[in-house]
Design a protein around this nucleic acid. Structure first.
Length: 334
DNA sequence: CGCTTTTGACCCGCGC
DNA sequence: GCGCGGGTCAAAAGCG
C-alpha cells in the first residue's frame, strides 16, 4: 500500500466552536479592561485638575492593586464556572453517545426471532471503520459509528464474505422524509421496501459512479429515533472518490472530500482534509496536495455558507438583521 | 434523450 | 411445501 500520503503535511483544520478558549478569552477581556483602567488612571493626572494634589501616587498604586486583586478574583471565578460547564458538557456528551450506541446498534438484538435467519458467522462480518468514516453528511452532523457486534443477515454477504459492512448514523430533520445521505459518491436508487421492524421505508442504493462498483447502501430511519438516518454500506468502492480532481462537483454535491468529526471531549469540529477512508487515502492525499490553498479555502467557505444557509434559524436571524439595517438606512422612514 | 426514481412483481432463503 | 420477509428486477413515470 502506498503510504506516501501519510507523509504529506496535514491540511486538517481545527475549527473551534463554542467556548473552548473561554478562560483565556475571559482573561483577555479582563486584561483589556484592566489595561484601559490602568491607562485611564494614568491619564487622569494629565487632566487640567492639578489642584487635586491630595491624590498622591501612593494612593493611586493602592487603587490599582485593589483593582488588580478584584479582577483576578473575578477571573478565578470565571475560570471555575467555565471548568464546571465544560465538565458538565463532557458528561452530557458521554451520556448521549452511550445512549446512541446502546439503542441503534442493538436493533438486531430486539428483532423478532422470526426474522432471524441462518446468517453468516459473526467473524465473517468485517466492520470497516474506514468506510464508515468516509461518509460525510452535508450538514456537518454528529457522526456516529457502530463498532459493536450486530446481527447482519444479508444474503449478499454470504455470497461475498469479504464484503465490508459499515453503518453510519446521520442526524436529520425528523420531518424530512427523504432517505438521502450525502457522502460524495453517486448513488442510484433501485428499490424501496417497508420492513417489518421499522415503519419507515428502507431505500436501496447502488454506486453508479462506476458500472462495476459493487458497493450498495441501504438508508432507513432509525426505529428508535426518527431524526437519525441509518445508512448501511456494503462492499468497497473499486474506484476513486468522484470528487477527486473535481472540486466543483464535490461542492455541488454538498459534501467535501474530507472527514468531519465531532469530538465529544470538547466542542470542536475538525475538518481533516487528509482523511478519506475506504482505502482511498492515497488518492485523496494527492488530491489534497494538488488543490490550491485558495481553492480549498473557497470550498470551505462555500461549505460553511451552505451549512449556515440551510439552518432556518440562521436565515431568519439574517433576514431580521438585514431588514433592520434596511429600515435604519432608509431615508424615507427616518 | 438519457438518466434517475418509483413501485409492483418476482426471487430466494429461512422457519415452521 | 408453504408462508413470510428482505432484497432485487424492470417497466413506467418523472425530470432536466
Amino acid at each position: 500500500m502506498d503510504s506516501s500520503w501519510m507523509n504529506t503535511p496535514s491540511l486538517g483544520l481545527d475549527l473551534t466552536v463554542g467556548h473552548r478558549r473561554l478562560p483565556e478569552q475571559a482573561s483577555m477581556i479582563e486584561f483589556s479592561r484592566l489595561s484601559s483602567s490602568v491607562l485611564n488612571s494614568h491619564r487622569e493626572p494629565q487632566t487640567p485638575s492639578h489642584d487635586e494634589s491630595s491624590f498622591s501616587a501612593k494612593d493611586e498604586v493602592e487603587v490599582i492593586e485593589a483593582k488588580l486583586n478584584q479582577v483576578s478574583k473575578e477571573n478565578k471565578m470565571l475560570k471555575e464556572k467555565v471548568s464546571i460547564m465544560r465538565s458538565n458538557y463532557n458528561v452530557l456528551c458521554t451520556q448521549f453517545f452511550n445512549l446512541v450506541a446502546a439503542t441503534s446498534p442493538s436493533k438486531g438484538e430486539v428483532e423478532s426471532p422470526a426474522r432471524k435467519r441462518k446468517s453468516e458467522s459473526p467473524e465473517t462480518v468485517n466492520y470497516s471503520r474506514e468506510l464508515a468514516s468516509e461518509q460525510v453528511d452535508a450538514n456537518i452532523v454528529n457522526h456516529f459509528e457502530s463498532n459493536s457486534s450486530e446481527d447482519y443477515s444479508f444474503k449478499r454477504m454470504r455470497e461475498d464474505p469479504r464484503s465490508k459492512i459499515s453503518k453510519v448514523y446521520v442526524h436529520t430533520d425528523p420531518s424530512d422524509s427523504s432517505l438521502v445521505v450525502k457522502d460524495g459518491y453517486q448513488w442510484r436508487k433501485y428499490g424501496q421496501k417497508v420492513t417489518r421492524d421499522n415503519p419507515s421505508p428502507r431505500a436501496y442504493y447502488r454506486c453508479s459512479f462506476a458500472p462495476t462498483c459493487p458497493v450498495k447502501k441501504k438508508v432507513q430511519k432509525s426505529a428508535e429515533d426518527r431524526s437519525i438516518l441509518v445508512a448501511t454500506y456494503e462492499g468497497e468502492h473499486n474506484h476513486g472518490h468522484p470528487s477527486q480532481g473535481r472540486v466543483g462537483s464535490a461542492v455541488q454535491n454538498g459534501s467535501l472530500p474530507c472527514l468531519v468529526s465531532f469530538n465529544p471531549s470538547h466542542p470542536t469540529i475538525t475538518l481533516d482534509l487528509t482523511q478519506q477512508g475506504g482505502g482511498h487515502q492515497p488518492e485523496v492525499g494527492r488530491f489534497c496536495g494538488e488543490v490550491e490553498l485558495a481553492e480549498l479555502q473557497q470550498i470551505l467557505v462555500e461549505q460553511m455558507a451552505s451549512s449556515l444557509t440551510k439552518d432556518p434559524k440562521f436565515t431568519t436571524a439574517l433576514a431580521t438583521v438585514i431588514s433592520g439595517r434596511m429600515l435604519q438606512h432608509s431615508p424615507s422612514l427616518n
